[in-house]
Simulated assay, not measured.
Amino acid sequence: MESTVCPPPQSGAPALPAPENTRRPVGINDVAARAGVSPGTVSNVLNRPERVAEATRLRVERAIRELDYVRNSSGRSLRAGRSDSVGLLVLDVTNPFFTMVARGVEDQAAEDGLTVMLLNSAENPERQRRSLRVLAEHRAAGAVVMPVDNDVADLLWLRERGIPWVLLDRGDVAVDVGSSVYVDNHAGGLAAGRHLVSLGHERITYLSGPLSLEQCRTRLAGLRAALEENGVEAGDAVRLIEAPSLTADSGEKAVEEVLAGGPRRRPQAVFCANDQLALGLLKGLGARGLSVPDDLSVVGYDDVDVAALVHPGLTTVAQPKYQIGRAAMRLLAAEIHEPRGAHERLVFTPRLVVRGSTAAHRG
Rank of each mutant, 00 (worst) to 15 (best):
Ser73Lys: 12
Glu20Met: 15
Asp303Ser: 14
Leu296Gln: 00
Phe348Leu: 03
Pro7Thr: 09
Arg62Pro: 03
Thr247Tyr: 06
Ala269Gly: 01
Gln319Cys: 05
Val306Asn: 06
His343Tyr: 12
Cys6Tyr: 14
Met117Gly: 12
Val181Leu: 01
Ala110Pro: 06
Glu229Phe: 12
Arg355Asp: 01
Gly262Thr: 03
Thr316Asp: 09
Ala192Lys: 01
His361Val: 15
Arg170Cys: 01
Trp165Pro: 08
Arg330Ser: 11
Glu126Ser: 15
Ser74Met: 15
Gly27Met: 09
Ala109Thr: 04
Asp305Ala: 14
Val306Tyr: 07
Glu106Leu: 12
Tyr69Ile: 03
Thr99Ile: 14
Ala174Phe: 02
Pro164Phe: 05
Arg362Ala: 11
Val353Lys: 00
Phe271Cys: 10
Val152Ala: 04
Pro312His: 07
Leu91Trp: 05
Ala140Val: 05
Ile241Phe: 02
Gly188Phe: 02
Asp112Ala: 15
Ala328Trp: 00
Gly75Glu: 13
Arg34Tyr: 08
Thr247Gln: 10
Leu211Asp: 07
Arg24Leu: 14
Glu137Thr: 09
Leu207Ile: 13
Ser85Gly: 06
Val353Phe: 00
Ser212Asn: 10
Glu229Ile: 10
Ser121Thr: 03
Ala18Asp: 08
Ser357Met: 02
Trp165Ala: 08
Ser77Gly: 10
Gly178Val: 05
Gly262Glu: 01
Pro14His: 07
Phe97Arg: 02
Val353Cys: 00
Arg265Asp: 04
Val37Arg: 00
His343Pro: 01
Leu132Asn: 01
Leu16Val: 14
Val148Thr: 11
Leu240Gly: 10
Pro39Gln: 14
Leu119Asn: 09
Val93Gln: 03
Gly284Lys: 13
Leu285Cys: 03
Gly261Cys: 13
Leu285Arg: 02
Gly75Tyr: 12
Val60Arg: 02
Val26Phe: 00
